[in-house]
Design a protein around this nucleic acid. Structure first.
Ligand SMILES: [Mn+2]
Ligand SMILES: [Mn+2]
Ligand SMILES: [Zn+2]
Ligand SMILES: [Zn+2]
Lengths: 143, 143
DNA sequence: TTGAAATTGATAACCCGTCTCAAAAAGAAT
DNA sequence: ATTCTTTTTGAGACGGGTTATCAATTTCAA
């Protein structure tokens, strides 16, 4: 039994509901994806090239987008590239990003979320999503 | 005396400090830029085509990026395009964005900013910048 | 006025991601 | 297992947005 049985189940359920098929590539990509917190399609392409040199980049993009629809991943447009964020085993969260070394720390803060709601309703908005990214230097890079 | 004398002064000071030259194009683009809250390079290109049909798109991009370096503008990667945010006459602010009509509302919230600092220091980070965007429906679009 | 240095505009190149399409694979029905 | 329809795949073309290239022009200090 695979280490990612639960997520594999979520994927299969989504596939079933949408007349989609379970393929060797989708299994391979899900397995690699779940080992990361965040990854780009390009990174995954190179990483998987060892296991299957014929896996196409388009397939990686298509599959990561599929994971987003299945609720396993979340796309974050980050600078010039798209990061796919592994959200399968955790809820919503935001990010601290080190401009020195690229390190990414995930965090949640209910107080901030609540204040966001206040700001929105004060302006007549109802929030659907949000993005909060804090850029700075981690302790290692500050010295 | 121009309506944007103060900002023109800021630009000239920046130019002086970096061996850059004051050109007709830079003056023209700054003047147009300061009339907006946010604008894309493409939008400005079409807008200025009336005043100077030979103004190149590359020059607009170069100049808006120059404004960012001079502290007059701030680039926000927004969906597929880059929005240049006029920050010359107001301090830092964040944005509420209506997913229905595209309306953008600017806001400031010290409490959120303070909590961000707390989150950062708790994780050993010092914040340099941040981005907070709240996406949702404005009151008009909700109905 | 002169001349070195910066800027401009046209357009090629670039990057990232999506689209196209013929061949291959999946899987339901026999 | 075989057939048959539907989906998926991989290669590469394509597209939008932005930056790089480079010869001609402009700026501005000397
Ligand atoms: Mn994350
Ligand atoms: Mn703004
Ligand atoms: Zn760091
Ligand atoms: Zn709206």
């Amino acid at each position: 039994m695979s280490k990612h049985a639960k997520e594999m189940e979520i994927l299969k359920e989504h596939l079933g509901k949408h007349q989609l098929k379970f393929t060797r590539q989708r299994e391979l990509i899900l397995d690699a994806f779940l080992k990361q917190e965040h990854i780009t399609a390009e990174e995954m392409y190179h990483q998987l090239a060892r296991k299957d040199p014929h896996l196409g980049l388009a397939t990686i993009y298509r599959t990561l987008n599929l994971f987003c629809e299945a609720g396993l991943a979340q796309a974050r447009h980050f600078g010039t590239q798209t990061q796919y964020d592994n959200v399968s085993h955790k809820g919503h969260h935001d990010h601290l990003i080190c401009t020195g070394c690229g390190k990414i720390v995930e965090f949640e803060n209910c107080d901030i979320e609540r204040l966001q709601e206040e700001v929105a309703s004060r302006n007549g908005f109802t929030i659907q999503t949000h993005r909060l990214e804090l850029y700075g230097l981690c302790s290692r890079c500050r010295h």
